[in-house]
Structures are given as C-alpha cells and as structure tokens.
Amino acid sequence: MTTIETNRPGTPEELKTESGVLRYYERGDGPPLLLLHGSGPGVTGWRNFSGNFDVFAARHRTFILEFPGFGISDDFGGHPMMTAQQAVIEFLDGMDLESVAVVGNSMGGIVGAALAINQPQRVSKLVTIGGIGANLYSPGPGEGIKLLMEFTDNPSREKLTQWLHSMVYDPAMVTEQLIEDRWTQAIEPATLASARRMYSSAAFGQMAKAAAASTEPPLWTKLNQIKAPVLVTWGRDDRVSPLDMSIVPMRMLPRGELHVFPNCGHWVMIEQKAAFESAVLAFLGRED
C-alpha cells in the first residue's frame, strides 16, 4: 500500500518578492522542473510532492513551490487562485528561470495551464494531474468539491476525514497521522481565512455570479492556445474532478496526450507513484 507524507519537511528556502516571501524546496541538477501543488484543507507543496521529489531530482533541477495563502509562504491576499498565478511568475523571475517544465496537481495544473497560455515562453512542457477541463457527463461541482465546501464553511475533523476519503481510491491511505497533519494546518486562522476566500459556499456563489456576468471565457476554452507539449494525467476513480472532465483537454490541446491510471483517485502522484513518475519522466525526456 502506498503511504502518504512519511517524509517530513526540512526548512524551506526563501525568496523575497515585492508581494511577500515565497518558500520553496530545491534539489537536483539538470533541466528545471517546477512542481505546483493543489488546494484543499492542510495542503502544502511538500505534502503533495515529497514522495516524488528525489525521483525527479535525479534528472532535473526540481523545485517545490509553496503557494501564498496555504500557511507556508506569505499570504499575498486576494483569491488564492489568482495569487498563485502571480506567485509563479514572481518565483520564475526571482530565480532567473526563463523557461521550466511544470507539473501541477489539480489547482497547480490550472495555474500551469494559465501560465502556458499567457506566457508561453516560460513553459517548455506541462504535466497536469486532474483539475483542468469541464464536466461533460458528471454534475459539477464534484463530490470532493462539495465536501471541501462543507469543511470550509464549518470545519470539523469528521468533515476533514470525509473530504480526505473522497481524494483517494484506497481508504487505508487516510491514516490518523494524515488527518492530524492536515487538521493542524487547515484550522490555522490565516490559512482557513484564505481557504474561505476560495472554497466557502459564499465564495462559490460569488464566483458563479461573476462567471455568468463576465465576458472572459473560462480557461478550458483557451486550451487550444497552449503550444507546449502537455501530458494530462487522471485517476480513473477521481471523485473531485471526474474522468469525463479529461475529454475537453484531450481533444483541445494541440500537443496533448492523456494517461489514465486505474485504481486511483485525485492524488495520482501518490496513489500511482511509480507509474506516474515513469510516465512523467518519459514524457519530459522525450524529444518533441
């Protein structure tokens, strides 16, 4: 059975930017690779990618970036999705990285896709893990997002545990240590306030109204603008971003390909660790 978060973090490095301090981890040499984490209670970049860090660092100069508003980097204020996009650009500029390969989990994949659309010269290749696309057959938001909203509105350990179970295929992965680590981070006041700007039922309602009134098309309609090669990865049993969401990026990405992992929920990089790493490294190492 795959385990989660057994590798405890050291002290992250710091990058001072105009918006605040960004914290990150760096290992390895070679072509630069940036790992972008997802959202949700108690999430960090380290918790998403620590198990993959050394494997990727054996071939790449690998960075795990901690997004603002999740309790590790400074909170830039504003909507976490928007500040995450801002943070990536400030991080690349501050580290003098002209172009990187990006691996993004869920929200991190959306941030990576937005970067590839808006600043295509910065993204050499992109790997996404769930998240991008649009619900075609399944209702939206998905089960995991609804449980996330319930937790954010009124946090409890029981609701956190229910949400964690929606993230994985194998329920044995939701250990007491995982619950405790996530709970401690999730209820930290500033982190919870940031989460409520994104995932409270009130915030979701405001976003829905803003989307209906906006003339700006949603991100998925712009996927055909991404010129870089893209590997879209998905867990077949994802209850946060159901598999039918992958049809849109599979069809629209000019240089996209889709890899679906069986017996796997939303955390592909954890539940199908070895298979995911093998597919990603092959993709990153391939001449296109």
Rank of each mutant, 00 (worst) to 15 (best):
W220T: 05
T62A: 05
P218E: 08
F53K: 00
V55Y: 03
V88P: 02
K227Q: 15
I129E: 00
L15F: 06
E18K: 14
T128Y: 10
R255Y: 03
N135T: 10
T184K: 15
F91K: 06
F276N: 07
E150R: 09
L92T: 04
L92K: 07
E18G: 11
E216A: 12
A134H: 15
E26I: 08
I145L: 14
W46T: 07
C264Q: 03
W220M: 02
P80E: 13
R286E: 09
P171W: 10
D74R: 13
S156W: 15
E257D: 05
V168T: 13
W46F: 05
M207P: 02
N154W: 02
P9A: 13
L160G: 12
D153P: 03
Q121L: 11
M149I: 04
E18Y: 02
L97F: 12
N263F: 11
R61Y: 06
S194N: 10
E176V: 15
Q119N: 09
E5W: 15
I179D: 03
W46M: 12
S106Y: 02
G10E: 14
G71W: 11
I270Y: 02
T152L: 08
V123M: 05
M149K: 02
P155I: 13
M173S: 03
S278I: 02
T6Q: 15
A58D: 09
T44A: 08
T11Q: 04
V102K: 02
A213W: 01
R236M: 07
Q119G: 00
N224Y: 12
S246D: 07
L15R: 13
G109S: 02
P218T: 15
V268L: 00
G142D: 05
L22D: 02
F67E: 03
G30N: 13
K209Y: 01
P249G: 09
I110W: 05
G112W: 01
M250C: 10
R47D: 10
A211M: 13
R23Q: 14
G144S: 14
E18P: 00
G42I: 09
L65F: 03
E90Y: 06
S214E: 10
D96F: 14
M1L: 13
V123W: 01
G142L: 06
S156E: 08
A116G: 13
F56E: 02
V43R: 01
P139S: 15
Q177E: 15
P242M: 12
E287S: 11
E66H: 10
G94S: 09
Q206S: 07
I132E: 00
H60E: 13
V248C: 06
A87Q: 05
N154S: 13
T221C: 11
F283C: 00
G20T: 13
Q185I: 12
I132K: 03
V55H: 10
Q272I: 06
T215D: 10
G42W: 08
L219D: 01
Q85N: 03
G109T: 03
A186Y: 04
E66I: 03
E158W: 03
M81K: 04
D170N: 15
S241F: 11
G51H: 04
I129W: 01
F53V: 04
T83N: 04
A113S: 14
V174L: 12
V230K: 09
A212F: 05
A210R: 09
L33K: 04
